[in-house]
Design a protein around this nucleic acid. Sequence first.
DNA 1: ATGGCTGCAAAGTATTTGCAACACG
DNA 2: CGTGTTGCAAATACTTTGCAGCCAT
Lengths: 136, 136
Amino acid sequence: MDFVSELQKREYRVTNSRKVVCNILENSGHEHFTADALHKLALEIDQNIDLATIYRTLELLEEIDIVEHSHLPHGSGIYFLKNLQSSAHIICDICGSIFDLKNSTTKNILDLLKSDSQYKDIRNHFLYSGVCKNCK
Amino acid sequence: MDFVSELQKREYRVTNSRKVVCNILENSGHEHFTADALHKLALEIDQNIDLATIYRTLELLEEIDIVEHSHLPHGSGIYFLKNLQSSAHIICDICGSIFDLKNSTTKNILDLLKSDSQYKDIRNHFLYSGVCKNCK
DNA sequence: ATGGCTGCAAAGTATTTGCAACACG
DNA sequence: CGTGTTGCAAATACTTTGCAGCCAT
């Protein structure tokens, strides 16, 4: 089901801004976006879309499990399409390319963290970073 | 070797602000600080120390491997004494208490990340979050 | 004495919020 | 129509920077 239908189903209003954002997310070919980058893309389609609306829309899409967000090493936010194959990512410190880690890797990491710390509901809010194959 | 001597050795100037910050880091009993919390402690000793100086001093201490910094889930920075026993931490979403993960846990995580992604020099800002034993 | 550091103020970056007007259902 | 949503502007939170004067060496 496409993102707009998902909004409809949940009785959120399908506004122009939301259509534009959903379209970019579904069709741009990218899998991750900063709010600002997404805003720039949105402006090419509708010049009146505000950055605040981008943030609010991303927040909404996160609530209904279409996107998730994480933080770049520097601290600012980056949004990902939720992908059944991967929920953790590693970014290249040099070229910025992002690699999607396997779910099994994520699961194993969480198990290690859990047995060491005894914490529950563990999450990692940050992208891992390193140097990718091409840049080393 | 204490932090001030470390500065001296590297020919950085031992100023009052730096002495105050080093003293707090070495003697407060805490292992992690936000810039703001450290600033408040510093003001109790010298009322003229500026937040900007705290940031600059932390940056300097990071350069010479005395502290390292990470980000809270919300995005703002948190500074840790570099500790041979632990370089990764998990913060409780509820009470804010921080647990230091074993180095072996960190090492195992890095191995998992490395074999999945083939990236080198991998880092996380290594602040995970979850719910601690007391809060669950 | 000289240039590394400082406090201060201002700017910068990322994100959130208040509000009146608008437009979706 | 009624209210959920928007654009705009301002506020917020955190961090960095420019600069003139100070002080550690």
